[in-house]
Simulated assay, not measured.
Amino acid sequence: MKRRITIKEFLHKQVLLVGILACIFAAAVHPEFGSRQGPLYTEYSVKYGAVSLIFFISGLSLKTELIEHTFHHYKLHLFIQSFTFILIPTFSHLFVRFLHFFGINSWVLKGLVTVACMPPPVSSAVILTRSANGNETAAIFNSVLGSFLGIIITPLLLFLGLGYTTLIPLFGTIIQLTTTVLIPLTLGQVLRKITGLKRLHPALNTLSQCALLFVLYTTFCDTFKTPEPHIEALDVLAAVFSVVLMQMILMGLSYSLAQYYNSDFSSQDIIAIMFCSTHKSLTLGIPILRIMFHGYAHLSQVSLPLLVYHPTQIILGGMMVSQLKDWVHLDRSGNRPPV
């Protein structure tokens, strides 16, 4: 007879999901505290504090030989970038045509197309991959690579999808990725070699999780605080339904396609694929939307899918972490059942 899991065991196993839900609750109660205009100075404490700390700890934990191996895994990188910049934009056009028959606001649908053109974020996909014991090195490499490619590809996709586009600040994006990702990661690797570190102390893993939750908390604060007037309840419901359905289909599709090539990808690779290829950047997306649709009365409806997409991808990812960790454990023991 199978033993029933106690509440304490469940909470310990789902600690990331519980933390995410706590962040959402705290942000909803008092969003001003963790917003950009709040007392935490999130434009510095998050970008140059928490995010840099996360990648510094990643640098400490990653084996150098594993990094070199991952760099040469070109099939994995090609799969993720093709899924991000080719398959998702193509799927979004078909998906939007399907939703059009249900009478959903056309500006909300334009927002879905815009979301599909965005590059991946450099934090959430990486941290969820790490939490699920996936290929963290591949997640970091492809998140950074996708952000660089997005500088060129995203404007082209927006032009093809909507007929107009905007430029992404090249210099600013490179500086941000270098200071918040590449430099902390390199410093972590250097310190790992100097100290001869073999295994990361559990306290550092806990610190990394806390930094992640701080990033998520401030993100949710900004989401709740963002003033979006002229939005009808029906538009909100349509956006939530469309985004959740879209993400579930994309995650299922990325998993199924990766499983088809299971001789090339391990279970850890597939976890990185599921998160990196389907996640979209809110940090870059919102400024692009503000520039593209500045002065439009429908800016709020266009922005709505991206505002919904970002927290949804984190919540769905958090719900899957525990199951994916068990999957990796079974795969290492020689038994690889489907998720």
Rank of each mutant, 00 (worst) to 15 (best):
L162S: 08
Q301D: 04
Q189F: 05
H201K: 13
Q259W: 10
F224M: 04
S303K: 08
K47R: 11
K280F: 04
P155G: 00
I153Y: 00
L234P: 03
L78E: 02
M246L: 09
L145M: 13
L53K: 06
F141P: 00
T129W: 02
K193M: 12
I194H: 07
T195Q: 01
S256W: 12
F275V: 02
P229F: 08
V240K: 11
S263T: 12
G334E: 01
F55D: 04
F224S: 07
Q189C: 02
A125H: 08
S267H: 08
V122S: 07
K280H: 11
I80C: 07
S131D: 10
M319A: 11
L17P: 05
L99Y: 07
S124N: 08
H279D: 06
P121K: 01
H30G: 01
A28F: 07
I286C: 09
K8I: 11
T226N: 12
I7T: 14
K325W: 07
P184C: 04
L207S: 01
I315M: 11
V244E: 14
Q81A: 06
K8S: 11
H100P: 01
P155F: 04
T195A: 07
A211L: 06
F25T: 14
N262R: 15
G38C: 05
L170I: 15
T178R: 06
M248P: 00
S45E: 08
L197V: 12
P287I: 05
V51L: 12
R336Q: 06
M118L: 15
L306I: 05
L177K: 01
E32I: 10
V126H: 11
S208M: 14
Y217C: 09
L160P: 02
K110V: 04
S267C: 13
D269V: 03
H69N: 11
P227L: 08
